[in-house]
């Protein structure tokens, strides 16, 4: 039992690091240019030149996947950033003014945003502004806001009843300062774990959005769009559909393993149970 905990974290981190590295390398170098079409080499099977073969336009699958990782990770990270930057302060504010009108307004606002799945937000934005990768970031980011607000409010509320917060109040500290000095550091663990979860959900959501054409637009490669293009050729070239899917599964799996490992490592409740 004890040995499994760091293992989970290590495996997850290793898998995810591989994708992150591939994405970073793709800025400097890819095996083949992903915008150049080479119909002569289309649907080539894996070879020394094309380690994972080529697609129906003769583009190198490995290069496409590397650049696709960039899109997925960038969208998911920025969406987590939006969710945290807006959601955590809202959650802390609501907790500091628990039971007040502000708390009620923030929480009802949360419920309202929760009623809009990120796909629906993306549909609304795309209908009015047209499709782009930015839409996906905003749509997933908005969806993340109430998630972080709720998690940080919940964790903060249980802290606000603790005596050490009362001691800080007796020391004349205001709610804002207490939230910053005492509450935020103590909920950081929870936020890190939730951040990994939302990161992996973000990769899944980005794939779904670009699959239906609401995310990254051509010629930017993305895993979801690769799947959409591969769909018509699923009978003749299933490889084109299988590879990007596997990339998504592995990246998400890595992040989830990492998140679970982090939770086991950081959650004092579990740690106590283990001792």
């Amino acid at each position: 039992m004890r040995a499994r905990l760091p293992l989970q974290l290590l495996i997850g981190a290793a898998i995810f690091a591989a994708f992150a590295l591939a994405a970073l390398v793709s800025f400097l170098w890819v095996p083949h240019d992903v915008t150049a079409l080479n119909i002569a080499a289309k649907l080539a099977p894996p070879s020394r030149e094309y380690p994972l073969g080529t697609d129906h336009f003769g583009r190198d699958m490995l290069s496409m996947l590397m650049v696709g990782a960039r899109t997925s990770i960038a969208v998911a990270i920025l969406a987590v950033g939006i969710g945290m930057l807006a959601g955590v302060p809202l959650g802390l504010w609501a907790a500091a003014r628990r039971g007040s009108l502000i708390d009620e307004i923030i929480m009802r606002g949360n419920d309202l945003v929760f009623a809009f799945p990120s796909l629906v937000i993306a549909i609304l934005i795309t209908a009015v502004f047209g499709p782009s990768a930015t839409n996906a970031i905003i749509a997933i980011g908005i969806f993340n806001i109430p998630v972080f607000a709720r998690v940080s409010r919940g964790a903060a509320l249980s802290l606000w009843t603790r005596d050490f917060i009362m001691a800080a109040r007796v020391a004349g500290k205001r709610a804002f300062r207490i939230s910053l000095e005492h509450i935020l550091p103590n909920i950081a663990n929870v936020l890190i774990v939730q951040g990994t979860i939302q990161f992996s959900l973000g990769i899944l959501a980005e794939a779904g959005l670009s699959y239906v054409g609401l995310g990254a637009q051509p010629p930017t490669p993305s895993w979801g769009r690769m799947l959409a293009e591969a769909q018509t050729m699923i009978y003749t070239a299933p490889r084109l559909a299988i590879l990007p899917g596997l990339a998504i599964v592995l990246a998400v799996l890595g992040l989830n393993l990492m998140g679970d490992g982090l939770r086991d490592l950081l959650d004092p409740r579990l740690r106590r149970a283990r001792q």
Binding site: S200, L204, A207, G208, Y211, L227, Q231, I234, Y235, P238, A241, I242, P244, G245, I248, V249, L250, V252, L253, N256, L257, D260
Partner: peptide, 21 residues
């Protein structure tokens, strides 16, 4: 753990590949 990581529309393609094709 694996099930959570699979995008549903990709899983759908695999099902088509297996059960239909």
């Amino acid at each position: 753990q694996l099930g959570i990581a699979i995008p549903n529309f990709w899983f759908a393609m695999l099902l088509v590949l297996l059960f239909a094709v």
